[in-house]
Design a protein around this nucleic acid. Structure first.
Lengths: 96, 96
DNA sequence: ATGAAGCGCAACTGATAGGTTGCATATCAA
DNA sequence: TTGATATGCAACCTATCAGTTGCGCTTCAT
């Protein structure tokens, strides 16, 4: 999940999908300095991480975002930040 | 940032720091199936991503969490999820 | 003063990630 | 039917990552 978002290209793809709704490997490859296959592999990895879903329609494969995975990751981060804040408060009390 | 959290060992370190407040490379290495140097490198990478801060005290280097970086990443994810939801709503309207 | 604890730096190794090329397949349009 | 479009699969290359070992430097306690 975090590994999927660790790559700048994949974050760019997420950005485009969030703004534009959907897209194809070939379409994205046209605006990126890399081959279609490279983009296709990135999308495949995003799909494995359930950040993206694909649907075949004729000869093209259309990708869309799955916001739930993003929300899940966000919650993971929030829980850590919260736990840290509580720990910090506890340490502070300990000092007084 | 996401790259720093992509590694399971580094997420474990974040967990421990969130719960326990602080720790050292040697201390964490004792509970992990790897050498101190490996852990030290992980902590160094977390520090580079500003997820963690270090402070030297005598012969030991103590690490603590920086919750701000976690909050920032969480916001990044939330913005994408929101943008996607808005896009989805727009597409829906378009269909009606 | 001396041994142990904690750390940092550097070189080395194996695996994986990101990218490429080449080729084969399926679909659409004229 | 035939050419162009969109895709998928596989082999290959290279750089980086996660981990190791080895070494030397401080700092602390006895």
């Amino acid at each position: 999940m975090f590994a999927a978002l660790a790559d700048p290209t994949r974050r760019q793809l997420v950005d485009w999908l969030a703004e534009e709704g959907s897209g194809t490997a070939t379409g994205f490859a046209n605006r990126l300095p890399m081959t279609r296959q490279a983009v296709a592999r990135h999308l495949q990895e995003l799909e494995l991480a359930e950040i993206v879903a694909s649907e075949k329609s004729g000869r093209e494969t259309r990708f869309t975002l799955q916001s739930q995975a993003l929300v899940d990751a966000s919650l993971w981060l929030d829980r850590r930040a919260d736990a840290w804040d509580r720990t910090l408060a506890r340490l502070k009390v300990h000092l007084e």
